Simulated assay, not measured.
Amino acid sequence: MVKLKKTDAILLAVICLVVVNIVYVQKYINGKSGSKTTPFVSRQTTTPLVNEQENKPGYNFIVQPNLTRNCETKCPNYQDQSHCRIFVFIKSACSGVHKRNMIRSTWASVSYIEGCVFMTTFVMGNPLNDTKAAVKQEMSVHSDILQYDGPDDYRNITTKTLAGMHWATANLKSEDIYISADDDIVVDIIKLQRAIQQFNETRAANSWPEFPIICGLGLMKGFLPHRINKSKWFISTDEYRWPSYPNFCLGGMYATSISVLSQLLEIGRSTRPLHLDDVWITGILRSKLGLPDTMLVTSDHSLSVHLDGFSGMNAEQSLTKVRQNWTPIFNSLTNETCFCN
């Protein structure tokens, strides 16, 4: 039997220890890499942890809208490529079909107005209930739904907004106008279209490199985070540590170009999301992009009416309220308006 020298024995022991550690670490790494994380925020109502360094969700779209909508027969100018195009992405819950139908029968019924194509799309998630078949049936009738395979609850509203942003930047032109809207507002589309024209002229007059962000419901300045955790708008200091937010648009409605939207989306890939989508997108991301407060603009005229979630109203009362606000807008429409929905 060969006897090892003391130094050889020590060296052999060290080598064995190193090998054992390498095997252990490799098993640990393999185990970690084998557990895939979901690209979406949890469907739970509480806010889960989000990777602060990356926000690169892979969106699987179950249902997508039809951009043509076959409007040419009713609206001959609909496909004229020289005209501006306005796309409204409405955040909607799968269960909110009555709200979608109210919108379809009022302000979203307009398809063309004073030289601009006008199109609405409802963005919704994939709920864990039996509404899937109903959504497919609804889509077969209306062709205006964008459904992604992700959460549909309010706490994950930013994820839903991002889904619409991803689809818009992938399918629309850089000069097209993107509008984010809630499903409890009535849009004055004639004033909206004219405001877009006005700010196009303002952009040219001021040599702005991009189209501004139009706050259609309100511009918030010096707004303080809600630190009471029972609040619907609660934000902890871990999520956002500063004493006030950058100026931002209320999320009920805001508009910008697809060009600006794509840049905000790119900034968002390396920025921790907040569940307050309006603060995050038009405040935090805008600020990081470098788009100044002077390009966060409002119109001299009210562009929309907020109906506060139809609080205390049943379906019939909600419809009556929407029609009451829509009627004067409808009566103000010019002959250069076309309906094909």
Score class of each variant (00 low, 15 high):
45 T>P: 00
45 T>D: 02
45 T>H: 11
45 T>F: 04
46 T>W: 11
46 T>N: 08
46 T>R: 12
46 T>I: 13
46 T>M: 08
47 T>S: 03
47 T>R: 12
47 T>K: 09
48 P>T: 13
48 P>W: 04
48 P>L: 00
49 L>G: 10
49 L>K: 14
50 V>I: 10
50 V>S: 07
51 N>A: 01
52 E>T: 03
52 E>N: 08
53 Q>Y: 11
53 Q>R: 07
53 Q>H: 13
53 Q>M: 03
53 Q>G: 10
54 E>L: 10
55 N>W: 13
55 N>A: 07
56 K>S: 13
56 K>G: 05
56 K>Q: 08
57 P>M: 15
57 P>N: 01
57 P>R: 05
57 P>W: 04
58 G>N: 12
58 G>Q: 13
59 Y>P: 03
59 Y>N: 09
60 N>D: 10
60 N>K: 14
61 F>D: 01
61 F>A: 07
61 F>R: 14
61 F>V: 04
61 F>N: 11
62 I>M: 09
62 I>A: 08
63 V>E: 05
63 V>N: 12
63 V>A: 12
63 V>S: 14
64 Q>M: 07
64 Q>H: 06
64 Q>P: 00
65 P>E: 03
65 P>G: 02
66 N>K: 04
66 N>A: 08
67 L>C: 03
67 L>P: 05
67 L>R: 08
68 T>P: 00
68 T>K: 06
68 T>I: 10
69 R>D: 06
69 R>Q: 13
69 R>K: 06
69 R>W: 05
70 N>W: 07
70 N>Q: 10
70 N>M: 01
70 N>K: 09
71 C>T: 02
71 C>W: 11
71 C>G: 03
72 E>D: 12
72 E>K: 05
73 T>M: 07
73 T>Y: 01
74 K>H: 01
74 K>P: 02
75 C>F: 01
75 C>T: 00
75 C>E: 03
75 C>R: 00
76 P>I: 11
76 P>N: 11
77 N>K: 06
77 N>C: 06
78 Y>K: 02
78 Y>E: 03
79 Q>Y: 02
79 Q>V: 10
79 Q>G: 13
81 Q>R: 14
81 Q>K: 15
81 Q>P: 06
81 Q>V: 08
82 S>W: 02
82 S>V: 01
82 S>K: 09
82 S>G: 14
82 S>F: 00
83 H>Q: 12
83 H>C: 11
83 H>Y: 08
84 C>P: 04
84 C>K: 07
84 C>N: 11
85 R>D: 08
85 R>G: 15
85 R>H: 12
85 R>Q: 03
86 I>P: 02
86 I>F: 04
87 F>N: 04
88 V>Y: 06
88 V>M: 13
89 F>P: 00
89 F>H: 07
90 I>Q: 07
90 I>T: 15
90 I>V: 15
90 I>K: 03
91 K>V: 07
91 K>R: 12
92 S>Q: 02
92 S>K: 06
92 S>V: 01
93 A>H: 10
93 A>G: 10
93 A>E: 10
93 A>R: 15
94 C>A: 15
94 C>S: 13
94 C>G: 15
94 C>P: 14
95 S>M: 09
95 S>N: 08
